[in-house]
């Protein structure tokens, strides 16, 4: 036993438990909180793997940005005090069978794939500096595509969520 194994067991257990709770909880805000814990667990896993920059990015973008947005959405669309929309029994059955079958297939594949890759000698991954250089070198095209995509998202979200003033003015006149 070494520390990596213990840490992985604790973090992975917590992450998996919260991920399961996301799917099983009916209350949408609690679901969001469990998703928050899953995301934090995943970012801890990145730190454990030595990918510090990716872990910190996960924290700042997902936890600080996306999750706040999601909870904001939940608050804006909640009609009753705490929003619950029930799911019928057969849907649970179908969904459960589907998920378990997929999990079985994926585990089968990963058992075959994972055994060929033992623990590497180095304990570090390239950090912010090399990643930045790579983004401006070999990976310039995906970087540019992502930035254009973000611009499109910015305009699109602002257009979709804008306050609809025109109809009000028409009503007044």
């Amino acid at each position: 036993m070494n520390l990596d194994v213990i840490l992985f067991a604790v973090i992975a257990g917590a992450t998996a438990l919260s991920a399961l709770s996301v799917a099983l909880t009916r209350d949408i805000v609690r679901s969001a909180v469990w998703l928050l814990f899953t995301l934090i667990g995943v970012s801890t896993l990145y730190f454990l793997l030595g990918a510090e920059f990716v872990g910190a990015t996960q924290l700042i973008v997902y936890v600080g940005g996306t999750m706040v947005l999601v909870v904001f959405g939940v608050m804006l669309t909640a009609q009753q005090q705490f929003l619950k929309i029930k799911t019928a029994g057969p849907e649970w059955l179908v969904g459960g069978i589907l998920a378990i079958a997929l999990f079985a297939v994926l585990v089968h594949v990963s058992l075959g794939f994972g055994e060929n890759h033992p623990k590497p000698a180095t304990n570090t991954l390239p950090s912010a500096g090399p990643l930045g250089t790579a983004f401006l070198g070999n990976y310039l095209l995906p970087f540019e595509i992502v930035s254009v995509h973000l611009l499109v998202v910015l305009i699109g979200a602002a257009y979709l969520a804008r306050a609809k003033r025109r109809s009000k003015e028409e009503g007044r006149s």
Binding site: E52, V63, V68
Partner: peptide
């Protein structure tokens, strides 16, 4: 001693609002 400490501090402090929103 994190290599991306400045970024990490920012990231963690920005998730403090979650408690407030909750």
């Amino acid at each position: 001693p994190l290599n991306v400490a400045a970024f990490f501090v920012l990231a963690v402090l920005s998730s403090e609002i979650f408690g407030v929103i909750l």
